[in-house]
Design a protein around this nucleic acid. Structure first.
Lengths: 233, 233
DNA sequence: GTATCTCATTGATCCAGATCAAGGAGCGCC
DNA sequence: GGCGCTCCTTGATCTGGATCAATGAGATAC
């Protein structure tokens, strides 16, 4: 198991600029808390104030809850990701570990205050926030206008980009999330997700190994299935 | 018609910190361009680099385009909003005027560089980006897990919050977007959107005046229809 | 190694919303 | 001020994915 110091060091090297003074590092250390989460456990965080989370190691999902126990996965996160947990509004949000996780949490407001003198940290925060927004917008298009097959294809391509291991022309994936998580992320049911996997397998575009292993055999064809725009203007 | 100076002044007073030095103001002026857009026109911007836009006056929609001419409205913007137009990736994006608009555009990278010495500007950019992300996440939940009636109710409540004019217990709206835009924003068809309006009207929750006028008569009931979580934990 | 339990797959039926098809109403233009 | 056009509404039918219902296959515990 990681110690608190390891997790914090990981944060320092990944988020803070190279030559940050030791007194600044100490300041961030006083603000942050190290949390270890076993698979399927959720992070407890204050409902009324935003929290900044750095995922040192592992994989998580951000889930929004509506009435009637409906759940929507808003985003998946992997080692090295930085994310902001919003205060609860019209809906409530939870961050749940897909596999064993180490993370550092910071009260958002205090973190921002500490970062004010270091615009490199601010810039990085802004940059990562922009990436999150960009991903969220792609998801909006996917959920609003795409068929089940297109959604699953888009999902696989997106995962390939983030956690794929290239192997010649193939891309190998080890999906840390269940079919249910995928369904909740794509606005589908597990049955429909499963059927699309079968379809893609039958068409020779992917190969599956066990529950979590997926190999993308023809990325170009998947791109077509995902409903992405061709080169044209 | 507004002059360039008017639009820029609007930007200065709304985005830059109160006591920004005149030389800094001049720097931003050299970076920014004033653009006037008539209704239904779209902003032309470079495809390969992100652009920052400040909406001095008017209303716009950000549209994502997938294959087969399918369109998804990612967000609506109103007077005073600041938004980032991403470089094109798997999909292309356009910003279109819903009504006559005045806006200031800045090359994102250069704007960020200019803002580096003024963390108040950075902080504001970050804050607005966070609000956009929050809205986008709410939209994700809406598109992924809500029924047509819930989507339209959520939409009306969201518009009430942003451009509603309170009038006792009622909220009056003058919607600048068409039924098609609403449909493209909610992942529905115009027919379905229209049917939900009729339903809400028949149930006495809203009143409509012409094409764009809507009065929310019972916000509490709309909240229930929108599938928001009750107080409970 | 095998018992068991959860997760994934496959099949049958159903339904919310899409699609197809007319009207009707608001708004701009001449 | 009325002509015409576009946008909106309403109705009928169709369908992709949800729901319901069994199996089947991986993982975990013993």
């Amino acid at each position: 198991m990681h110690t608190c110091t390891d997790a914090f060091d990981c944060f320092v090297s990944r988020v803070l600029p190279k030559r940050t003074g030791p007194e600044t590092v100490r300041l961030f250390r006083t603000l942050g808390s190290h949390v270890h989460l076993k698979a399927d456990r959720q992070l407890h965080y204050p409902e009324d104030e935003p929290t900044l989370v750095f995922l040192c190691d592992g994989a998580t999902k951000l889930v929004a809850h509506a009435s009637d126990h409906r759940e929507q996965v808003l985003a998946f996160h992997f080692t090295g990701d930085l994310l902001t947990l919003p205060a609860h509004g019209a809906h409530s949000y939870t961050l749940e570990a897909l596999i064993e996780c180490d993370l550092m949490t910071f009260p958002y407001a205090q973190f921002l205050q500490a970062a004010e003198k270091h615009q490199q940290v601010l810039t990085q925060l802004l940059e990562r926030s922009t990436v999150s927004l960009q991903r969220s917008r792609e998801k909006t298009l996917t959920l609003g206008r795409k068929s089940a097959l297109e959604r699953v294809s888009s999902f696989l391509l997106s995962m390939a980009e983030r956690i794929g291991r290239g192997d010649g022309s193939e891309v190998k994936l080890d999906l840390p999330m269940s079919r249910r998580d995928i369904a909740d992320s794509l606005g589908l049911t597990i049955e429909t997700v499963s059927r699309q996997f079968t379809l893609l397998r039958d068409q020779g575009l992917i190969r599956t190994q066990g529950r979590s292993g997926v190999t993308l055999l023809r990325v170009d064809e998947l791109d077509r299935r995902a409903g992405h725009l061709r080169v044209a203007a």
